[in-house]
């Protein structure tokens, strides 16, 4: 794997992102899409947990915010990959980054749990999924910030 990271880190795109103004630009885009994604998910989760907007029908309310979350998710991943390839070996070895990726995978599996429980109209399972979603996404943000505080 080390050879692949080395090759990836030596590509022209990796160099352009890592050594020019593109890095802060891509990072700014990443932050913009991540806060949009997490902001939308938090509001959807709080509604599922019955903490807000109880006058709105659950399904249509959640749908509106999930649309935003999906719209922000794709560019958040692409910009995240852009940042990753600028220093792939350093990120891959970074424990905070590894934890962040695990949390994102868990958050993804949790989306599947939510849709499955929604299909079966199992409200308790939906609430459990929303609670887990809050934990996964807030922890992912924390891990993401911690990446920069660990030298690798």
């Amino acid at each position: 794997m080390a050879g692949f990271w080395e090759w990836l880190g030596n590509t022209e795109l990796a160099f352009q992102i890592g050594a020019t103004w593109l890095f802060p630009f891509v990072e700014s885009l990443h932050v913009l899409f991540v806060v949009t994604l997490v902001g939308a998910i938090l509001l959807a989760d709080l509604r599922v947990l019955g903490r807000m907007a109880l006058d709105e029908p659950l399904a249509s309310y959640v749908r509106g915010y999930v649309h935003v979350a999906w719209f922000a998710f794709v560019p958040a991943v692409l910009t995240g990959l852009g940042l990753f390839i600028s220093r792939p070996a350093g990120y891959a070895d970074n424990i905070a980054f590894q934890i962040k990726i695990i949390l994102l995978v868990l958050a993804g599996l949790n989306v599947w749990l939510y849709y499955r429980s929604e299909k079966q109209q199992a409200l308790i399972a939906q609430k459990l999924s929303a609670g887990l979603s809050l934990i996964f996404w807030l922890s992912a943000i924390f891990a993401g910030r911690w990446v920069g505080h660990i030298s690798g």
Binding site: V34, G39, L42
Partner: peptide, 9 residues
Amino acid sequence: IVAVAVLIG
């Protein structure tokens, strides 16, 4: 960042 996320949301 979470506060900014809530503001954007």
